[in-house]
Amino acid sequence: MIWDAIIAPFAEFGFMRRALLGCVAISLGATPVGVFLMLRRMSLTGDAMAHAILPGAAIGYLVSGLSLGAMTIGGLVAGMAVALASGFVTRATALREDASLAAFYLISLALGVLIVSTRGSNVDLMHVLFGTVLALDNAALILLCSIASLSILGVAILFRPLVMECADPQFLRSVSGLSAVTHFTFLSLCVLNLVGGFHALGTLMAVGIMILPAAGARFFASSIAGLIGVAVLIAIGSSVTGLLLSYHFSLPSGPAIILVAGIAYVLALLFGPVGGLVTQAIPKSQVNP
């Protein structure tokens, strides 16, 4: 029974094992970035960046069809262009970063949908928007694992300046010139993970595996290391469960994985030991009155 429900799909089918490996790689690489996005109150920035990579991926598709390399490079260029342009506008004008980012990502998203719609079929659009986690080939897996390795290394190297940039940016600027470098390297890691994620989960869903586990982890841990650890576990658990639900009930895999992560978030919100709604409602026992 347990074998049939949980183990057999992965044991018997190579595409399920590939999907699992891809999702685990995304969970390990993207989720720590998502934790810092959440802690920096930039969760919606992740969403904006996910939309921003669409025209680059679409142009890559137009040039080379469903080519991994062309779509990846296109997505990276578009994501970085939006990040740098919104950063420049924020520093050069009175417009705040959220407004300039929203402006650029909306332009980018509209451009992307236009390109895909006019030059491709609906199937192509669905591929870019929702990914093809069950059709990951060797090249895609190598790309996802490379991005995950680079991302983990990047977060490890940036960890201290990133913490300071989040908690006390004025102090970091007073002791080090690393503030701008940290900010843009972090945004680059964010774009890199979203570009990796969109091959498996699509541009719209990739940000889900970044943010939902991080938001859920907030109700289980109160240290940064704890948050990252719990978020990665939630992401991997959601990936396994989502893939199995997709296999047994013929559901689209990307949305199934993100929906499970969403359910994990709601459960954490209700029952999480660190500030969950039910936990807060239970009166604390009086000690030494």
């Binding site: 802690l39 913490v163 989040c166 908690a167 006390d168 102090f171 841990a221 240290s223 940064i224």
Partner: peptide
């Protein structure tokens, strides 16, 4: 006010 007191630091 420049410091994020909600950040999980000890």
């Amino acid at each position: 006010s420049d410091i994020d007191r909600g950040f999980p630091l000890t």
